[in-house]
Each structure stands twice: as C-alpha cells, then as structure tokens.
C-alpha cells in the first residue's frame, strides 16, 4: 500500500516537473524543474526495487548532466531570452498527444509475460556480477569506456578555441 502511494505521488511530481520543463519561460527555472523530475524518476526506480539505479540516476543525472546544462545556460545567456517556442506548437501538440494515445493503447493491449516473482534485492552485487562476471557484459562495458573516452576527446576538440 505504501508502495502505491509512493508511486502515485512520484508519478504526479515527475509529470508536473516535466510539464514545467517544457512550459516555463525562464530557462533556469526549467532546468531546476528538470532536476526535480530526475529526482522523481530516481524515486520511481526505488519503487521498482532498483536501488543501485536510483543512486546512479541521482549521481549522473542530477550531479553531472544537470550541472552541465546549467553551465551551458549560463554561458549562452539563454536566461535573458527565455524559452521561446517555434511555429510548430499546435501541430506538435497534436502529434504528441496522438503518440501518447497510440503508445498507451499499444501498451495496454499487449499481454506482457509478467512473472510474479519477488524482485531481487539488493541489486548492487547482482548487477556487478552481471556486468563484470563470466558470461556477462564485460565487452560492452569496455566499449562503453571507449565511447566515453571518445566523447571526452570529441567535446574538448569541438569547444577548443582555434
């Protein structure tokens, strides 16, 4: 029961924060709403018994990405201009609602092969053996490392003063 209450509260907060992100005129406030939304999603992860992911969500999204975004806002003086919309507001709104409609319809009309097992908890050790253990995803982890390295080099190259 407590889980359900938590879910509903978190879902409402997440959606409200997300709406704020796309509607607020002040870009800085929009960024703060985004952080709120990230935190709510972290909470959602907790309700799904994904404790490790919730921590990662907070560390990376709130700690790193949000900071980066705020930094970019400061550097590009977007606060003065505000968050403007282009001419596509109405058609995109209709498209988005349509998409939400068909996506929801599709999700509710699919019979998911749900298993009624209790979730594994805590997940950290399990995830570690999944990622690094035998028959795991170690190759993918290494590829991800290379991707991150390439990203660092690429980002530095792009923003470097000529």
């Amino acid at each position: 029961m407590g889980l359900e209450i938590a879910f509903w509260v978190l879902a409402v907060v997440a959606i409200a924060a997300a709406l704020a992100v796309v509607t607020l005129r002040n870009v800085f406030r929009a960024a703060l709403s985004l952080i709120l939304c990230f935190l709510a999603v972290a909470g959602i992860f907790v309700t799904l018994s994904a404790d490790f992911l919730a921590a990662v969500q907070i560390l990376i999204y709130v700690g790193a990405i949000a900071v980066l975004i705020i930094l970019a806002i400061m550097l590009t003086r977007e606060v003065e201009r505000g968050s403007l919309s282009n001419k596509l507001v109405v058609p995109v709104l209709i498209s988005a609602i349509l998409f939400f409609g068909v996506a929801t319809f599709a999700m509710l009309n699919t019979s998911w092969p749900v298993v009624s097992l209790p979730p594994a908890e805590p997940t950290t050790a399990l995830l570690a053996s999944k990622l690094f253990g035998e028959d795991g995803f170690i190759l993918t982890v290494e590829i991800a490392a290379i991707l991150l390295l390439a990203t660092i080099i690429g980002a530095i190259t792009i923003v470097r003063e000529k």
């Binding site: 997440a14 959606i15 997300a18 709406l19 992100v21 796309v22 870009v27 929009a30 960024a31 985004l34 939304c37 999603v41 999204y61 990405i65 975004i69 970019a72 806002i73 590009t76 977007e78 201009r81 968050s83 403007l84 919309s85 282009n86 596509l88 507001v89 995109v92 709104l93 498209s95 988005a96 609602i97 998409f99 939400f100 996506a103 929801t104 999700m107």
Partner: peptide, 26 residues
Amino acid sequence: AALFSIGLYGALTKRSAVVILMSIEL
C-alpha cells in the same frame, strides 16, 4: 509514455537548443 510525450513536445517546439537538450533528457 506520458513523460516521453512531454519530452517529445518540448524537443519539437522549443527554439533554444539547451531546452531541446533538456527535453531529450526527459
């Protein structure tokens, strides 16, 4: 789906590239 659609709306209507990026994160 709801969060995705909201993000989608933002990504397709905003003029500021930073806000578009935020929507994509959503």
